[in-house]
Design a protein around this nucleic acid. Structure first.
Lengths: 348, 348
DNA sequence: TTGAAAGCGATACCAA
DNA sequence: TTGGTATCGCTTTCAA
């Protein structure tokens, strides 16, 4: 059993209250006594008991804000689910989580959501899936610098901001992985079209495409890459674009579906009836996509760990706020999961 | 905030002690009052507050036993690390974990380790990586039936025992996945040799081989599978066997290394100098194997989630013991991870 | 059969 | 600048 605040008090011949004040630098302790207390605490490796901490906080829970966008997409739904689950675990530690969810890609809206959490709800930490905009970046930096609020980014990063850390995929590496898999199934030749939705505010998407293109150029110079851009990452839009693509390019060897709208892509392939010719690699480990892999329409699925993207940000913030424990890493890259017909049974 | 035992007491007009006795069936409560208390608890969805639970238990921690074998192998080391980490998290819940580790494959020793934990240490739950032996199976059943002790299996299962659940890979599916990958890289023809250590007491190993063989037969009938059995899952033994294999079969297309001894296999391939001809698929996400993938010696690595295999058994046991919450699933299959050069950067 | 009280570890607040 | 006390939710023990 670790040492407790009571034992430190006894060892130093003072009361618990004094120890508490000394360890939290609240003043009102004679400097030499404070020093002695901190010394003893360090010597015995004092760590506050979390059950005690939680219980004493029961009437004044800590609040953590979560800001997500694109919540209508199935993958972000999974992240949100994981986040809610972890939130209910954290209620054990007397920590409340407040959600602000958006379906749009509007940086102004995101900034105002953050402001609302800070001003109205007095949060002690923020987990955000940031839009790729200076407005958001500046707001994050302001929170960190002027309010000492810990901020973590999830799913998509703003690497130049002053966030504590990032939890999510290395999207560039995911794109490179897709390239290698495409080389394997096509034999390294033919025309491939990545299909990508609007990526202006969504760094993750453009990184996947860049990784794919750069890797194909290196390992399969005989593959011709011809991106298809769609106006919205949504099924009908994706379907129309895929239909046009398949008709315009009958000898297409492969499609790399980078952004949501997967159902639209799959329907278009089925409708044009060349399911057996076009190789297909999809992102996002959602039930519908798993079914397409099982049924043989898609060769591979690239998954990312929704569970970890939802839970780890809250865990890290909670540790930071309660125990002042800084995250060990700057980037917590989640797995780049490769799923095919043979290893998805336990996920369905 | 969930309802507390105090609030239930007030609602029912009795004291906390009475509520406690009623909810835990400790007797000494008038039946009609007990019924009323349980009714109110159910109505308001009472769940004990874990911080309170933990704190009150601080002086009498719950004890959980962990029994592992093959601890000298690098993968089990990772499982053990994860297990230790989770154990230190659980100390928050006033739960102590006692380890019994073995390097051998002796069922008698495993049984006596379990007995020691039960008799001498009075554990309230057991997580075990079981040997494939009736001795172990009977012992597990005895604990469950005669002592109502919850038992979970990890890494390797005894599906016919009365364990609460299994946490680990679906090894048969892992073997099938290896088969598909081998088909991809070899083009579906040639001679392939799975290399496998002693699997008499180690169900996981024989399942991988069976899965591999059955799937190859289905999807790549032109591949000839020719297993190599080695006497010990250890490097020098594996090296000798691999050298003999490569010399005896110069046109070998692929090796599927199923059990530890990977370093030996890799050294043998490098020594005979045909690193560029033989395709290689390895199990186990350990640092040395990751390096072989990075360096191009191995085509694929099949990983399993050591983290989850170490932590989930303890979490589930703790929930079961403290909250009487039964695991939701009979099998918690961990990911069958496919790793190649492009998606391992974040793991190294 | 029931209730009251102490204790677990930490924090907050009031009184000295 | 300090110490004492109440509080959080639950279990355990002792007394009525």
């Amino acid at each position: 059993m670790a040492i407790t605040i009571n034992q430190i008090a006894q060892l130093c011949g003072v009361s618990r209250g004094t120890v508490d004040r000394a360890l939290h630098n609240k003043g009102n302790v004679r400097p030499e006594i404070a020093a002695r207390i901190r010394e003893v605490a360090a010597e015995y490796g004092y760590t506050p008991n979390r059950a005690g901490l939680a219980l004493s906080r029961a009437s004044h829970p800590i609040k953590i804000g979560v800001v997500l966008h694109s919540v209508q997409t199935p993958f972000i739904q999974l992240v949100l689910d994981a986040c809610r689950r972890e939130a209910s675990n954290l209620s054990v530690f007397s920590t409340d989580v407040i959600f602000r969810l958006s379906r749009s890609l509007d940086p102004l809206e995101q900034v105002s959501m953050i402001e609302d959490l800070v001003e109205q709800h007095n949060i002690s930490g923020l987990a955000v899936m940031p839009l790729h905009s200076m407005l958001v970046e500046n707001k994050i930096n302001e929170l960190v610098e002027q309010r000492q609020l810990p901020v973590v980014t999830l799913n998509t990063d703003l690497p130049n901001s002053r966030r504590l850390c990032y939890i999510g995929q290395d999207n560039y590496a995911a794109g490179r992985t897709a390239a290698e898999l495409m080389r394997l199934v096509t034999g390294g030749k033919g025309i491939i079209s990545p299909i990508i939705g609007p990526s202006e505010y969504h760094l993750a998407y453009s990184e996947r495409l860049a990784g794919f293109q750069s890797e194909i150029a290196q390992i399969a110079p005989d593959i011709h890459v011809q991106p298809t851009h769609i106006a919205e990452d949504e099924n009908e839009c994706a379907r129309q674009a895929t239909l046009a693509l398949l008709r315009g390019c009958p000898d297409l060897s492969g499609i790399y579906a980078i952004t949501p709208g997967y159902e639209g892509v799959c329907r278009a392939i089925l409708e044009t009836g060349n399911a057996h010719r076009v190789h297909l690699i999809l992102h996002d480990e959602i039930p519908a996509n798993l079914r397409h892999v099982r049924d043989g329409l898609a060769d591979f699925l690239l998954g990312q760990d929704a569970e970890m993207q939802g839970s780890l940000p809250l865990t890290l913030l909670c540790d930071y706020i309660q125990l002042r424990r800084r995250p060990k890493k700057n980037n917590y890259f989640t797995d780049i999961r490769i799923l095919l017909r043979h290893n998805i049974a336990s996920l369905m």
